[in-house]
């Protein structure tokens, strides 16, 4: 770790001002940032701890008329255990439960999870200076890409590791952000971008922008909405998603049981692209039709239609297909 200065403001304005100093970086639970500091993939001059902030809404889960509101400093553990999340947002509760292990869930925050850096084994390798670290080439493109992207075009083919992001995007969540570059409410989907020649950043936020809250709209007819989060891992627990699927369907009124017709559909994939990946063609394939075996097959095919496997990750296509099918089957209304 390089040496740094440290501050722990209580007021948001103070934090935002400090964050605008060159080389400043926000520190929440630190569970991701410390791994980067140790690996020297980040070398900030000043760490601004947001843990001391007294701003209302930053911690905990609440609801108002339209939204379930999740403070950015809410820990993953609080999130997974919160009754509002369990009752109203089971997709999110399921996703939170699959994240890491208790020791990380007790400390890691929702904001930090959404803003975490990729886990690519080249990026995190002390002997490698890859494109994402400011080097010339993506080592994974021609190298070992077992865990890398099958969707999207970017000079870096690392996948986004967050479990919360696909779940929240499936829930059509928004992020409330303050800062010099972005301010206001932003659809979470719009938060993410693929790195390109212009910028290596994976989100649209600047270094001094902070996520304050996540707003999840409440469905108008909760009984007609079903959702699930499935995650394929290399072992039973504490593994980043090899592939994950967040699926959320609403069923049209007046249609019941197996013949229930899908109204809106959201299918978001994790672990397959440099950002959470919406399977829009699959969503379209589902809308308006009953959830028959054929419809599920069609949706699963559509979900992987544009996939571009690399030397070592073609298996992710089969896995995605299987996981999408399994997710949709589990959503058949009783």
């Amino acid at each position: 770790m390089k040496r740094f200065r440290y501050a722990r403001p209580e007021r948001l304005e103070a934090a935002l001002r400090l964050l605008r100093e060159p080389g400043a970086k926000a520190l929440a639970g630190g569970t991701d940032l410390l791994t980067e500091l140790k690996a020297r993939t980040q070398e900030p001059e000043l760490l601004v701890s947001v843990q001391g902030l007294q701003e209302p809404g930053l911690r905990g889960v609440r609801e108002d008329e339209r939204f379930v509101r999740i403070g950015a400093l809410t820990t993953l553990r609080e999130l997974e255990a919160h009754p509002l999340v369990r009752d109203k947002l089971p997709i999110l509760a399921q996703a939170a439960q699959t994240v890491a292990m208790p020791q990380i869930r007790h400390v890691g925050t929702v904001g930090g999870n959404l803003m975490q850096q990729v886990r690519c084994w080249y990026y995190r390798h002390p002997f490698v200076r890859c494109w994402l670290k400011g080097g010339e080439e993506c080592y994974a493109e021609e190298g070992l890409n077992h865990r890398h992207a099958i969707f999207g075009t970017s000079p870096c083919i690392a996948v986004h590791p967050s479990d919360l992001a696909p779940a929240l995007i499936a829930l059509d969540a928004q992020a409330r952000v303050v800062g010099p570059d972005v301010e206001g409410e932003l659809a979470l989907e719009e938060l993410y971008r693929l790195p390109d020649e212009r910028s290596r950043a994976r989100t649209v936020l600047g270094p001094a922008d902070l996520i304050l809250e996540i707003l999840v709209p409440k469905p108008s007819e909760p009984t007609r909405v079903r959702g699930v989060y499935l995650k394929a891992m290399e072992r039973a627990t504490w593994s980043f998603a090899v592939v994950s699927v967040a699926a959320r369907l609403s069923f049209e009124p007046g249609s019941e049981g197996v013949r229930a017709r899908v109204g809106d559909a959201r299918l978001v994939l994790g672990g397959v692209a440099g950002k959470p990946w919406r399977a829009r063609d699959a969503e379209a394939a589902l809308r308006g039709s009953p959830l028959t075996d054929e419809a599920i097959e069609r949706a699963a095919e559509a979900a992987v239609a544009g996939a571009q496997p690399r030397a070592h990750n073609a298996y992710k296509i089969e896995l995605t297909r299987a996981l999408v099918k399994r997710a949709l089957r589990s959503l058949l209304p009783p």
Binding site: G30, L47, S49, P102
Partner: peptide
């Protein structure tokens, strides 16, 4: 344990 909850001491700054 930090306030009774298990955490990884290697991923936590002492100052925090």
């Amino acid at each position: 344990l930090l306030d009774g909850k298990p955490i990884y001491a290697c991923l936590r700054l002492a100052i925090e």
